[in-house]
């Protein structure tokens, strides 16, 4: 494994993508809408101030559902735009490490997602004003939320490598993300259990982001959940690399 080459490729791709996000209104619009929607959902739908508790449960509850929509939006252009504008040809002619490029692009999108999460800090301050909050549990949930965001982004990035249309990449990305989120929703896992038996319902729920994030929402670090998200991200990175490499064979 050529670590120096991989790191150089990651760095080059990360720099390029970060500059692309902030050179256009994309990152700013993404962050503004994400904060606005998350704020409305937490404040209004979850009735944050009516719970009477100094915890961020109502705030974290919406993360998987919002990531399902927002992360594919953030990742949709990563490869689709390269294909559409022809820069993919330039990129593939450079002496770069392909997994490094894929990781670098994903890390750039992940950085924007991390920045958006950091900007939710007023909620954290608010619960501390409301009463004694379990800050260690909140920090842990933030951490797992960020890891989960990476998994959602990896889906979007991999799908983006399959098409030249960013919009199509977004739609397919949201669809896959929805399936992986809703599988853990009691309504869905319950229906599967009724139809195919309780073990099938449990098995479906185990593949859901919702299921693995629920533990973190309670402030508990479950390694199984962490490995699930990281493993899923790694799988998507491998698929993304494969999809881009397939272009060399002339498959696209």
């Amino acid at each position: 494994m050529d670590w120096t080459g991989t790191m150089a490729s990651i760095k080059a791709a990360w720099r390029r993508e970060i500059s692309a996000y902030f050179a256009t209104p994309l990152a700013y619009v993404f962050i503004a809408i994400f904060l606005l929607v998350l704020g409305i959902f937490t404040w209004d739908l979850s009735r944050f101030f009516d719970t009477g508790a100094a915890d961020l449960g109502p705030f974290f509850y919406w993360h998987p559902w919002l990531f399902m929509m927002f992360m594919p939006a953030l990742a949709m252009r990563l490869w689709a735009e390269e294909t559409n504008s022809g820069t993919a040809e330039l990129l593939l002619s450079l002496p770069v490490n392909l997994p490094g490029l894929v990781i670098g692009k994903l890390l750039a999108a992940w950085s924007v997602a991390a920045f958006a999460l950091i900007l939710t800090f007023p909620w954290w301050i608010t619960v501390n004003i409301l009463g004694p909050a379990d800050n260690a549990a909140i920090a842990l949930t933030y951490f797992v939320s960020l890891i989960m965001a990476g998994a959602y982004l990896a889906i979007g990035a991999a799908v983006s490598a399959l098409t030249r249309s960013a919009v199509l990449a977004f739609v397919i990305g949201v669809l896959i993300a929805f399936i992986l989120t809703a599988a853990g929703w009691p309504l869905v896992s319950g229906a599967v259990a009724d139809w195919l038996g309780p073990s099938a319902g449990d098995a479906v729920a185990q593949f859901s982001f919702l299921t693995h994030f629920e533990t973190a929402q309670r402030g508990v670090l479950e390694l199984r959940g962490l490995f699930f998200f990281l493993g899923f991200t790694t799988l998507c990175i491998a698929l993304n690399t494969l999809f881009v490499a397939q272009r060399r064979a002339g498959a696209q």
Binding site: A12, R15, R16, A20, A23, T24, S85, E89, L94, P95
Partner: peptide
């Protein structure tokens, strides 16, 4: 094909990084 959102300077630095 070029990255239209970049300046030539930033673009050439990116290419140099990939090398």
């Amino acid at each position: 094909p070029l990255y239209r959102d970049m300046t030539p300077l930033a673009f050439l630095r990116f290419i140099a990084d990939t090398h």
